[in-house]
């Protein structure tokens, strides 16, 4: 199976590999897996609690090239977005950008799941504090 150039680029030079301490201020962690193939993906965001903007994102993926590329791309896209904007990232955006073939679409679904899980975890842990900060500003 031929990978697209973008997949190969992300696979050879994955962006933002690593992790944050789970309890660091503003950090949300998503840990998801693909039961079809056993891939595991951890994706984390670090949100500025004053602005609600994602300042940094990191991932660790143990899986195929497309899963690594999907999560690498996801972290690139997350940086600089607000939490609400981040919710809008769809797996189809990843498929289009990386030109994933049909058999690899589940890798992009996994990345979307990871984003959603990280955002949900962030809201769980820090959502209230963000709301307080937001109401102070208004």
């Amino acid at each position: 199976m031929a990978y697209s150039e973008k997949v190969i680029d992300h696979y050879n030079n994955p962006r933002n590999v690593g992790s944050f301490a789970k309890d660091l201020a503003g950090v949300g962690t998503g840990l998801v897996g693909a039961p079809e193939c056993g891939d595991v993906m951890k994706l984390q965001i670090r949100v500025n609690l004053n602005t609600g903007v994602i300042e940094d994102a990191k991932f660790k993926t143990f899986g195929c090239g497309s899963a690594i590329a999907s999560s690498s791309l996801a972290t690139e896209w997350l940086k600089g977005r607000s939490v609400d904007e981040a919710m809008k990232i769809k797996n189809t955006d990843i498929v289009n950008e990386l030109k994933l073939p049909p058999v690899k679409i589940h890798c992009s679904v996994l990345a979307e799941d990871a984003i959603k899980a990280a955002l949900a975890d962030y809201r769980d842990k820090w959502g209230k504090k963000e709301a307080v900060a937001g109401s102070k500003a208004s």
Binding site: G33, P35, C37, G38, V40, F62
Partner: peptide
Amino acid sequence: VLAARAYLNTV
């Protein structure tokens, strides 16, 4: 169980 098995297989 199948999912757990798939994750175990990979590792």
